[in-house]
């Protein structure tokens, strides 16, 4: 039997229509996971600037003061918090804990991710 995932069907992973909170959690986990992977590479490129000397790095850091980049950073923060909390949720349910509360745990993860992002946003833009 063909054991290889088919790329066309991968798209169905991201279709939230008619699905339930459990699947939204799954979709969001995939999206944040992909986003964070992308960010990791971006982060490595930035660090790569260090190799070109302090001045190049400082110049680059100036860019990060733009609001657009700040917004991106907030997205990264939200994604990290959600992905980590949902990871805990998946671990717990895999051990048979809180299966009946999995929906509430998902909502809690989203809520905490939003609150966390808000806290960082206030500090970032106020400071």
């Amino acid at each position: 039997m063909n054991n290889q995932p088919s790329s066309r069907k991968l798209l169905t992973w991201f279709n939230p229509l008619g699905r339930n909170p459990g699947a939204w959690a799954f979709i969001l986990n995939r999206l944040t996971g992909l986003g964070l992977t992308f960010y990791l590479f971006l982060h490595l490129i930035v660090l790569g600037r260090l190799a070109q000397g302090p001045q190049a790095y400082e110049e680059f850091l100036e860019l990060t003061k733009s609001p657009l980049v700040k917004l991106g950073e907030l997205l990264v923060i939200g994604a990290v918090i959600y992905h980590a909390l949902n990871g805990l949720r998946v671990v717990l349910t895999s051990f048979g804990l809180g299966i009946r509360q999995q929906t509430q745990m998902f909502y809690l993860s989203v809520l905490l991710a939003l609150v966390g992002t808000l806290v960082f946003a206030i500090r970032m833009f106020a400071g």
């Binding site: 339930n20 459990g22 998946v90 349910t93």
Partner: peptide, 23 residues
């Protein structure tokens, strides 16, 4: 762990819980 199986199961099998228990 998308829990979709349990959401659509028409017959009280609750496959998601059973998969977790099987783990």
């Amino acid at each position: 762990s998308a829990f979709e199986c349990t959401a659509v199961c028409p017959s009280f099998v609750d496959p998601a819980r059973r998969i977790m228990d099987l783990r």
